[in-house]
Each structure stands twice: as structure tokens, then as C-alpha cells.
């Protein structure tokens, strides 16, 4: 069973048709990279999956269940779907450790000790275990984004969404975040990544999607996508960013 199944997804902001007839199926363990010019609807698309954005037409199924079904609680749905934002969005009044354990202890009701053990393990995995008691503002952008990844992973999600996770970072910090994401991909996490990091796409993506003007223009495995893009718009886009 597909982890995510998107059927005929349509969304409008007023008259602006931001997502047009998007279909997509993501299997367990797949890594999708979604790219495209800004305003193409790629962020909006992944934000529809955990209902951070609502849409007017079409459907999204998560593990076989319609995310808008009456018996689906939006909070439990989101607990299963991790998301990492461009601007990290850590809680500035809490330490790194508390940022990571907040949702597990409040949503999953995991005992504090257990949640802390998991959090420290995750922080080690993203390489910042010795910053656990610092506050977000004391960390670099790259470190903050790695905390954000750990925070999302602490809920043991089935899927991870990445919304331009490296776009707000200084160039020298991009790799430390990408490496964490690559490790995750290799460990079999199902991932949907909106990113312009084409090196990342080449290395770990199973499929690359190109979006423009709210439509899915092209979709192909990375080697094919980069060496032989079919659509003219994709060719143009690739020429500009590579």
C-alpha cells in the first residue's frame, strides 16, 4: 500500500489556481525531490499532505486513509508526518532537548525519561548531542535545522516532508543538513523534499518532479531527469540552476 496517494489535487487562492490536477503516489521508502521555480506550488503541494494547507478538490490518502475522512483526527495525522521548514521554526523559549521532547510527551504521552533518551539518541544522530541544553538562538543555522529534523523524527513519523530545508542557510552549512537528510534516505525513510539541491537529488532521490505554474510538468528518475529532460520548461530550469 502506498504511503501517500494524491489524486487530482486542486487548490485555489481566490482566482489563482495554485495547484492543478496533481496526481502522485509515494511508496514506502521512496525519496521524492520536488523542484521548480518559486511560486510553482511545490511548497503548497507538500503542505497539503499534512493539512497545513487545505485544498478544494481532489483527495490525499495517507496509508490508505483519506486525510479528510471524518474519523481522521488532524493531530494524529500530523503526528505521523514530520515536516521540516525553511526557517527551522524551533521554539525559542525552550532548550534544544525540550524542543525535541515537547511533542512526544504531549501528543504521544511518552514518559519524560523515555522521550529524553530518544531525543538524545536523535540529537547524536544529527551530530549535536552536546548542544542539548542550549537554546536555539545559541546555535548556528545549520545546527538549528538539524535540531528541527530531530524534533520531527522524535515523533517516529512514517513520512518526512522537507520544505526547502537548506534555502535559509549559509552555503557552508548546507552540507551538514544535506548529509543528515542523505543518511535518513539511506535508512529507508519515506521523504518528500522540496529543494534546489540537485546534488542531493542525483544522489538519493528515487524520482525527481519538476513543477511549474501549479502543474506537474515532468517526473523521472534522477539520471533520466538530469541527462534527458523532456519538457522545454524543465530544460530551461535546469540550465538556469545547474
Amino acid at each position: 500500500m502506498a504511503v501517500i496517494e494524491v489524486r487530482n489535487l486542486n487548490k485555489w487562492y481566490g482566482d489563482f489556481h495554485v495547484l492543478q490536477n496533481i496526481d502522485e503516489t509515494v511508496e514506502k521508502g521512496e525519496v521524492l525531490v520536488i523542484c521548480g521555480p518559486s511560486g510553482s506550488g511545490k511548497s503548497t503541494f507538500i503542505r497539503c499532505i499534512n493539512r497545513l494547507e487545505e485544498f478544494q478538490k481532489g483527495s490525499v490518502h495517507f496509508c490508505g486513509k483519506d486525510i479528510h475522512a471524518r474519523d481522521v483526527d488532524v493531530n494524529s495525522l500530523r503526528a505521523e508526518i514530520g515536516i521540516v521548514f525553511q526557517q527551522f521554526n524551533l521554539y525559542p523559549h525552550l532548550t534544544v532537548l525540550k524542543n525535541v521532547i515537547l511533542a512526544p510527551t504531549k501528543v504521544r504521552k511518552t514518559p519524560k525519561g523515555e522521550a529524553e533518551d530518544l531525543a538524545l539518541m536523535l540529537l547524536e544522530r544529527v551530530g549535536i548531542q552536546n548542544q542539548a541544553h542550549k537554546y536555539p538562538a545559541e546555535l548556528s543555522g545549520g545546527q538549528q535545522q538539524r535540531v528541527a529534523i530531530a524534533r520531527a523524527l522524535a515523533m517516529r513519523p512514517q513520512v518526512m516532508l522537507f520544505d526547502e530545508p537548506t534555502s535559509a542557510l549559509d552555503p557552508e552549512m548546507i552540507n551538514e543538513v544535506l548529509n543528515v537528510m542523505k543518511d535518513l534516505a539511506r535508512e529507508g525513510m519515506t521523504m518528500l523534499c522540496v529543494t534546489h539541491e540537485m546534488g542531493f537529488a542525483r544522489e538519493v532521490a528515487d524520482r525527481v518532479i519538476f513543477m511549474d505554474g501549479g502543474q506537474k510538468i515532468e517526473e523521472a528518475p534522477p539520471h533520466e531527469f538530469f541527462s534527458n529532460p523532456k519538457s522545454e520548461r524543465t530544460q530551461l530550469f535546469l540550465k538556469e540552476i545547474l
Partner: peptide, 27 residues
């Protein structure tokens, strides 16, 4: 407080009330 704080809280599964109690109001 930046709107993204509420979004980041709701995105991990906190309810509206939990997001306010643990994230928004303390700030």
C-alpha cells in the same frame, strides 16, 4: 509572535490548546 510558531507546533500534532499552552503563551 511569528505565525510560524503556531504552524510548527500544530505540524508535530499538538492541538490548538496545547500549542497555545506550551509554545505561544509562554512566549
Amino acid at each position: 509572535i511569528p505565525k510560524t510558531q503556531l504552524e510548527a507546533s500544530r505540524a508535530v500534532g499538538l492541538s490548538f490548546t496545547q500549542a497555545y499552552v506550551y509554545v505561544i503563551l509562554p512566549q
